[in-house]
Simulated assay, not measured.
Amino acid sequence: MDDSHTKENHEQEENELRDLISVTQATILYQATNICKQPCMTSTYTGYVWLKELISEDANPIRCYNMFRMHKIVFKNLTHDLVTRYGLRGSRNTDVREMVGMFLHVLGHGIGNRLAQEHFQRSRETISRHFSLVLDKVCDMGKDLIQPTNPQYRKDYIGAIDGTHIPVVVPAFDQIHFIGRKETTTQNLLAICNFNMEFVYVWAGWEGQAHDIRIFYEAIGRRDAHFPHPPPGKYYLVDAGYPNPTGYLGSYKEVRYHLPEFRGGPSPTGYREVFNRAHSSLRSTIERAFGVLKQKWGILTHMPSYPYEKQVQIVVAAMTLHNYIRRNNVTDTDFEQAELDLNYEYSVDHEDANEGVGASNPYASPDMAHLCDEIAISLQNH
């Protein structure tokens, strides 16, 4: 009986010791994470110091352009406009210029929150909050910048329409709707571009599986899509993947079309090839614009795992900044490259190009077919 009592006392002591060890470990962990927490963002070379150095008068202009994808004067003008016209405000501890710099750096390089924390020496919550705030303001700006700007058209052709795919990150249960032709998850968007490589319309957020023709008809048919229909007598240029109702001029099917086919082959023969070369040369403007957009804003090819609605906003914000730079900068390296390089428009991913609807287009209107012949014969005669 004494042995049994001794054994019970021993087991009780072991249990008490285990409980004491558990309590001690929990206490140490709590102190380490909540009481004696070691500061993380302690670098004296903060993001604000770095930013001020980059936009200073003495700094090499290439540094600002490489980090924020725009020249110093454009950065300063953008910050001023976001503050004075769209109500962007800094916080007690963060200057508004640093907020804009965070935003542009993330968009330009597609970096995640952790890298932004280290670069700007700010907490995760601060980076996320300021990014979202600037994103909302830039999208507000987009309502003013992504629209037709000059109602006094000099030519009958007023823009080009095309679509492109942007990578997205979506939950596994929803991925089937976003898997496109390249077997990756994307969002499909429809855009209109004028011949200055400015986007005048965008409808983003469509699932990668959505066909371009469906998006097109939804855009021109829905009042809430706010589509800028061409005025009477004017038209948009569209590629072989789109229908040709009144106001939308396509090319001749089953005839040479893409510019490299003409550069590497014989001169155009017949009025149809003459027309197709001219049509391709003009419509390549939107391919150039997409090329500049993706070249400048790396987040469009390396999208972090934001909520889907924010990923759609990011596309609109990138196109807004694209237009802002185009309208507010005399020279820009990415735009200059697109204008000078004859093959630039074909450096973009042609799997984004729309699939043709065949030699006989059942969606073509007779008046657009007649206009196509009329223009083609006129071009050949000149």
Rank of each mutant, 00 (worst) to 15 (best):
G205M: 09
A338I: 08
R122S: 00
G270A: 11
T46E: 06
E287C: 04
Y65M: 01
T301F: 01
Q295G: 14
P228N: 12
L282D: 08
S43A: 14
R18E: 15
V168C: 11
T333V: 12
S56I: 05
T94W: 01
Y324N: 03
L107Y: 01
L78S: 13
Y248E: 04
H211L: 00
D373R: 03
K253E: 10
T84P: 03
V134I: 03
R277C: 06
Q12T: 10
P245L: 06
Q380H: 06
I286P: 00
P307M: 07
R223A: 14
I192S: 07
A210F: 04
R326Y: 03
I62S: 09
E53Q: 10
E339F: 00
V255K: 12
R97G: 09
C139V: 08
A116F: 00
Q175S: 15
Y30T: 10
G264E: 14
I62D: 11
S267W: 02
G87H: 08
Y308M: 12
R18A: 12
V357P: 00
F275Y: 15
A338V: 05
N361W: 01
S281L: 08
H71R: 07
P362I: 03
E98F: 00
R263T: 13
T164A: 09
Y363V: 00
I220F: 08
T246M: 00
E336A: 03
Q38A: 13
A225E: 07
P304D: 02
R263S: 13
E339H: 01
I158P: 06
Q31L: 11
G221R: 09
I377H: 13
E273F: 06
V168W: 02
S305W: 01
Q12E: 15
S347L: 13
T320V: 06
G90M: 07
L189Y: 07
A219I: 02
G180I: 00
D156Q: 13
T94A: 01
D58L: 07
S251M: 07
I375Y: 02
Y344I: 05
M102K: 07
G108I: 01
C40A: 11
E218W: 02
R181S: 08
D367N: 11
G205R: 04
D136E: 15
T333N: 09
Y153I: 01
G270W: 07
R256I: 12
P230W: 11
R283W: 10
G112C: 09
P304A: 04
H279D: 05
E16Q: 14
V202L: 13
E198V: 02
L145K: 06
V255C: 10
D81E: 14
Y306P: 03
D3Q: 13
C40T: 14
Y257V: 03
L88T: 04
L371I: 08
S132H: 04
G142P: 02
P230Q: 06
G110D: 04
F335N: 07
R129M: 07
S267H: 13
R92T: 14
D3P: 00
G247I: 11
T269R: 11
R326V: 02
I55V: 15
S123E: 08
H119P: 00
A160K: 05
F216L: 13
N276V: 08
H165R: 05
D162G: 09
N361R: 10
K37H: 13
I192A: 12
V238T: 11
S56C: 14
S132K: 08
